[in-house]
Amino acid sequence: MRLFKRLLLLFFVVTISYSSPIFPKLTGRVVDNAGILSSQTKRELTSMLKNLETNTSNQVVVVTLKSLQGYSISDYGYQLGRHWGIGQKGKDNGVLLIVAPKERKVRIEVGYGLEGTLSDAISSLIIHNKILPYFKKGDYDKGVLEGVKSIIGTIKDTFKPSKVKGNSSDDFAPLTFFVFIFATVFLQNLFSKKYRKYFSKLISSSFIGFFGFVLANSLIVGIVAFIISFLLFLYFKAFESSAVLNSAYSTYDDGLGSGGFFGGNGFDGGDFGGFSGGGGGFGGGGASGGW
């Protein structure tokens, strides 16, 4: 067992040393790591990009980097796109606008699905005609805004969202499950021992419900999974064994520790409800420029 653990560790070390560049965290639709954009610009970009995703499902992310860590921007760009999984799975409709002020490089990285519309030639035109004139004057805000507007203008008629998402319910659904878990844990401490076992069952089944929701990306599936598992828990004595409960509790702790599944809530940009990549693919399409 010990050997196995060591091998596993070794494996991780090896994989980490392979996946070369260090990527910033996806904290929202605008990741301003280099700190070159004003908060006004960030808000404006975020709302434009959010609108775009609602209407077309295309995901565009603006990222500014402190450093390219010695990689060329095209080399860094597609790996960052893959790492974050920008764009929807299957559609591969993600775009990254990458700015590296230290190296004075900019790149539009285009996912497989948009290579036809936002071609290399058009990306290059946007960089040279819309972005670089402002960057040369040191106006990053205006350059990025103009660039993003042109990108949106180019890809606004490409994809349709696969299903109309009820925005508010979609954003809050995962929260309700968490609130539920918190509430049960809280109540559990208030009530006598007699009722405690029901609470643990409630917690476990709300977890299952939550996983159902995450996996199927549908609130109804989550609720159904919750009800079924709760009933199952009530009927099956076997599940009362402490092992299941313990594992449920530890999952609960892990979930809190790692910050949950919806990594990187972009609260700063008014992007309430979180933002995460949809699993889109990148193959090196797009264009780069420097100033």
Binding site: D120, S124, H128, G283, G284, G285, G286, S288
Partner: peptide
Amino acid sequence: FLALQSQLEGTENRISVA
């Protein structure tokens, strides 16, 4: 020419990714 050049650059980049 500029369009062709950017396409060629993009393709070279795709080749190295592939």
